[in-house]
Amino acid sequence: MVSSYRGYRAPQGMLSWALHRLTGLGVLLFLFLHIIDIFLVGYGPELFDELLFIYHHPAFVVGQLALIASVYYHAANGIRIIIVDFWSKGYKYESQLFYGAMVVFFLFFIPTAFLMLNALLNEL
């Protein structure tokens, strides 16, 4: 199975799909974690605030950046797929739509990353 992916020189469409699947599964795993921590809110501020140190750790800030990148990518590429699905001429512009999605991705991600890293530096 894995060798299949190595054996095919991925065209852009296949790369975008592989990334879509990976980011989707990544975000899902984070979602599980996030549900657990929010569940702990119910047990009062002490426990929750104590746990938050994880989120404040610089490594985790970078991790969150990856998470946010995943969410943005998954959203932008997902919209591209929906356009191809519902617009009968969408197939023609599949590749342009991908580049469009990447532009949207960076438009959102660059300021987000800047703000987050800025906050981290201020905190350190």
């Binding site: 938050l52 946010i68 987000t112 905190e123």
Partner: peptide, 21 residues
């Protein structure tokens, strides 16, 4: 996206604690 914006753009991870929630 709104959720991410609220948590990480308009606020930062360091603003978030029990009181925030």
């Amino acid at each position: 996206v709104i959720h991410v914006m609220v948590m990480h753009v308009f606020n930062t991870a360091f603003d978030i604690d029990y009181d925030f929630v």
